[in-house]
């Protein structure tokens, strides 16, 4: 895997920048899979201590680390941000650098955040939570809705009426169950304005997972994933990985439920 990665142009080229230590940039982990969390001494004694059946006790119970690789992200063009002029100062920490005025995300960091988000999503799906995909870019609307339908969850990709969450009882004419997780494919409504649902989710204690581009504000998103949210290939990639995480969570739920019913 590493040799294949090294063939990618970004890794082949030599970084010419005197301000930073060259070796740290390109001899980094080149991680294609997340390093599993270090196992402490107690957990290593598998023979003595039985492995917990509670999925929350495992660092990566649903193995979401192997859904994608950093190479997949690179090929899906997740690393491309907007131009420096529209950069939100809060997104600086996720950047690898600026290539001739265009922000480039650090995919190692993005992969880490994405895996946290996928793990959370899979756990919510496992617990039978309601998941809503939210996005407001017209060109990706059908793709997002299709992905949501394929994993048996919900989507809201049209114009957002203010109060859909905060005033749901009046909106729907009855007490309404709000979703347990909102996945934002796009946290902006227009080029400048934030999607209303970001604030509404925070107000209504609904956790959020969101793709934040270099012009977005990641602060209110519970599990932000820094990355390109505009390219079709990138959105296809996000839809694929979130669908897979939800599918794994649900499959495990089915397995456990059927096992308990049969006993």
């Amino acid at each position: 895997m590493e040799t294949r990665l090294l063939n990618l142009p970004i890794f082949r080229s030599i970084l010419k920048n005197v301000n930073l230590s060259k070796t740290t940039c390109f001899t980094r982990a080149l991680s294609t899979q997340a390093n599993p969390a270090p196992v402490d001494a107690a957990a290593q004694l598998d023979e003595v201590v039985p492995v917990s059946k509670n999925p929350l006790d495992h660092a990566d119970y649903f193995h979401v680390h192997n859904i994608f690789t950093v190479e997949d992200m690179f090929k899906a063009r997740v690393h491309f941000g907007h131009k420096e002029g529209s950069l939100d100062a809060k997104m600086k920490q996720f950047l690898f650098g600026s290539r001739l005025g265009h922000c480039i995300f650090d995919l190692d960091k993005s992969a880490d955040f994405l895996r946290q988000a996928l793990n959370f999503t899979a756990h919510i799906a496992y617990r039978g939570g309601v998941i809503v995909f939210i996005g407001q870019s017209p060109q990706n609307c059908h793709l997002v809705e299709k992905s949501a339908r394929e994993c048996g969850e919900y989507a809201h990709t049209r114009a957002w009426r203010i109060g859909t969450f905060t005033n749901s009882t009046m909106m729907y004419g009855a007490v309404t169950r709000l979703p347990d997780l909102c996945i934002f494919m796009n946290t902006l409504r227009t080029v400048l304005d934030e999607h209303f649902a970001v604030t509404e989710c925070a107000k209504m204690l609904v956790p959020t997972v969101g793709i934040v581009d270099s012009n977005c504000n990641p602060n209110l998103i519970t599990y932000p994933v820094p990355g390109n949210d505009d390219s079709p290939s990138a959105v296809q990639f996000y839809c694929r990985v979130f669908k897979e995480a939800i599918r794994r969570g649900k499959a495990e739920r089915e397995r456990v439920l059927s096992k308990n019913n049969s006993v």
Binding site: S13, I14, L15, K16, N17, N19, L20, E84, L87, A89, K90, K92, Q93, L95, F96, G97, S98, R99, C103, I104
Partner: peptide, 12 residues
């Protein structure tokens, strides 16, 4: 937001 400097990416 931590004040992270943005480095320029250049290649030989």
């Amino acid at each position: 937001a931590p004040d992270t400097p943005i480095r320029n990416i250049f290649y030989l």
